[in-house]
Every structure is written in structure tokens, then in C-alpha cells.
Write a protein that binds this DNA or RNA. Structure first.
Lengths: 206, 206
DNA sequence: CAAAATATGGAGGTCATCTCCACTTGTCAA
DNA sequence: TTGACAAGTGGAGATGACCTCCATATTTTG
């Protein structure tokens, strides 16, 4: 899957240079404030080369974070294999927040790409979602977690955390969200709060 | 606060025309796909006029949703006055989702503006946050809700819901998030899941 | 009604994005 | 090694969105 086309030596070199510089700029947080053309010059290649390797900003972001996301997913599988399902889920979500905290670039990237609705980053995004889905499913099967609120909700909460990365008390609030999600999930009993919430009195708002 | 400058008659008329067309385009969902210049023509005014009234896309969005957000906030106060704190909070959050569902434009707008970090929409955003903060505070005072997870976390979850507005099962997942948040908040006892989650094994990811 | 104040609109400037192709570099068979 | 073909390069310039500017038009005021 990774070996579709053997890249020529210099092409490979340029690609790496691009990625290296991109990582640098990402961690500095200035990726989205930078002219894409200037970025090419910055990495020491022509704009044409930049565009051939990465047709869009999003494609570059995807490439940059492909590795990190893969690592995150591996970690999820590893946790799942060594911990009780519920703890694995908790550890993963907490770890996710810690990771975003340490790599602000990722949070901002995810937020921007999500909102842009670019559909790019699809690969990584789907991979992450799959990991979460598996973790939740396992916890549900264990009976440790309610079954009436899919993993999608957890993903939404995660998106929210990423999207709000520039709030003043980000870390504390992010941890708070995870706490709410985890405790909310644990409440598998007395499903009283779920039923009945169609339209309510929204209409009257006019 | 609203009467800083008496607008000339025709200016007022143009402003209304702009806002009216904007609402229309918003609800059709195409606001962010439309050239700003074309929008002026669409509303029947020159680009200069558009820019004089609304210097940026965000300013226009802010103006369009100013009324709606105000209504939402009123509703929050009203609920707070007539329902037990916990129910008021629940009703408000559920209503919020319902409102976004009915007005897709709002969800997309909030998402985009949040991610753009434009800082615009600040007024409405702060107003909403204040409303949520009040609702949560009241519920905490009632003892119906834990006090170790500020309203900021709830806002983050709300952002997440808005940011993910284009997911396939949006409505169901959004309701799920609210359910988790509410149930998570109710768990005011046995605060076992909060402590101890600093760095964990994030370092090992490397 | 004339003058002063206020607002209009769209032509054109500016700037980031992306394309295109004449040229360079790498690869490989003989 | 060398020649020749494939693969890749880079940057000038086309494209198109955003915004400004000002000669003209419309309201308001005295």
C-alpha cells in the first residue's frame, strides 16, 4: 500500500525537505499564517515542486500528521490489549488531550481542517475514529459503558476540544470535557435523560 | 448602545437588504462558498456599500446572528426563571441542538468562525457562554451538578457539535454528546475519574 | 431650493494561489 | 562511460478573490 510508485532520488529528497520544514513550521504554530508559495522557498524548492508533491495545504498537513496519527492509533490498540476496556478508553482520551497540549500544531490543524470541511485528512481522521470506535465497543461489551450513545459522540467531543484550542484555560477545560464524557458513558443505568427531546419548544423561538 | 449613529434613510434600506439576503443565503448553507463581491451584487448593492456596512464576512455573520443569539440567551434566562436549575440547563442544551438542526447555517457559521479564530462573533459568543455559565452555576448551587468541571467544558462540547455539523448522523450524535455532558455533570459524587491524569505515558509515544 | 452632509457603486489595485512548460537531473541499457 | 529517455524542477505569469478609492448621486438641513 505504501509502495505504489518508486520515487526518483532527488524527488524523494525534496519531499523530505518539504516535510521536515513543514513539521518545523507546524510546531511553531504558524502554518496557516504562511503564504504557501513562501513555504516552498523556505524549504528550498520551487513552487511547482511543492504543488506537485502536495497539491493543497491540507494534503501537506495530512502527510505531516500521518505518522503521529498512526502512532496514536497504535497506542490505542496497545492500551486495549493490556488494560480493561474502560480504563483503556479513559487512558486513550486523556492521552489524546495531553498529546494535543504538547503539540499545539495538531490541535489547530485538526480544528481548521475539520471546519474547512476539506474532507482531506480523511485517512487520519477515519483511522482515529476507528480506534475510538473500537475502544468504545469493547467497553460496551464489557458492560462498563452504556450502549445508547455511539462513539460518534465521543468524536464530536474530541473535535470540540481541538476546535477550541485557543481558549485561555484550554487544558483544564479539555480535561473537564473528557471527565464529563467518561462519567457520562459510565452511567449505563437509569437511562432517564435520553428519552424525549425532539423539538421541544424550539418553535416558539421564531 | 444600539443608537450610536442615526443612519440615513437609503443607507438603512441597503443595510436591511444586505441582511435579508444574507439570512437567505445562510439558511441555504452557501454563505462560505460565495464570493463576497458576488454577494453584494446579489443583494442589489455595490461592493463598496457592502464593505462599508460590513467590513468582513465575519461582521456580516455576526450581524445576521445577533438577533438569533439574543433570542437564545433570552430563552436561557427564561428557562432559568421557570425551571429547576438542572432541568433548565438540560432544556437549554437540548434546545440548542434542535435550533442548530433547524438552522444548519448557524452551526456552520459558528464552526467556521471558531476555527478561523476570527475573534469576531465575539459578542454573540460571549453572550452565549455567559448564558451557559449562569445555567451551570445555578445548577451547581442547587447541588444538582458537580462543581469541579466549569462551564467552559460545556462550551467546548457545544463547539464540537457545531464543528461536526456535516457528519452523517449529526443529529443523533449531537444528542448523544448532550446526554453524556448532562449525565457526566450529574455525577457530583465519587469524583474518582478526575484525579491523576497529568502526563501519563504520552512521552513514550515519541 | 441650494448647500452641506452622507452614501453609493463599480473600476481597478493588490495579493495569494496555482498552472504550465522550457530546462535540468537522474536512470539505465549497451 | 555514454547517450538517450524518463522523471522532476522552478519560477514567471495567469487567475481570481478581496478590498479601496473617489467621482457621482441622494438625503437632509437651513
Amino acid at each position: 500500500m505504501t509502495a505504489a510508485k518508486p520515487l526518483r532520488a532527488d524527488a524523494q529528497r525534496n519531499r523530505e525537505a518539504l516535510l521536515a520544514k513543514a513539521r518545523e513550521v507546524f510546531d511553531a504554530g504558524g502554518f496557516f499564517d504562511l503564504r504557501f508559495d513562501d513555504f516552498a522557498r523556505l524549504a528550498g524548492v520551487g513552487t511547482g515542486t511543492l504543488y506537485r508533491h502536495f497539491p493543497t495545504r491540507e494534503a501537506l498537513a495530512e502527510a505531516v500528521y500521518h505518522g503521529e496519527v498512526a502512532a496514536l492509533c497504535d497506542r490505542a490498540r496497545q492500551l486495549q490489549a493490556t488494560l480493561p476496556a474502560e480504563e483503556a478508553l479513559a487512558a486513550f482520551l486523556r492521552g489524546m488531550v495531553g498529546y494535543m497540549d504538547a503539540h499545539q500544531g495538531l490541535a489547530r490543524t485538526l480544528a481548521t481542517l475539520m471546519a474547512t470541511g476539506s474532507g482531506a485528512l480523511a485517512e487520519g481522521s477515519r483511522a482515529l475514529e476507528q480506534a475510538v470506535t473500537d475502544l468504545v465497543a469493547a467497553a460496551v461489551k464489557d458492560g462498563a459503558v452504556r450502549d445508547d450513545v455511539g462513539a460518534g459522540a465521543v468524536m464530536m467531543a474530541l473535535h470540540g476540544i481541538g476546535a477550541a484550542h485557543d481558549r485561555p484555560g484550554w487544558r483544564a477545560e479539555a480535561d473537564g470535557v473528557i471527565t464529563l464524557v467518561l462519567d457520562g458513558l459510565r452511567r449505563s443505568c437509569s437511562g432517564d435523560s435520553q428519552r424525549e427531546h425532539e423539538q421541544e419548544s424550539v418553535g416558539e423561538l421564531k
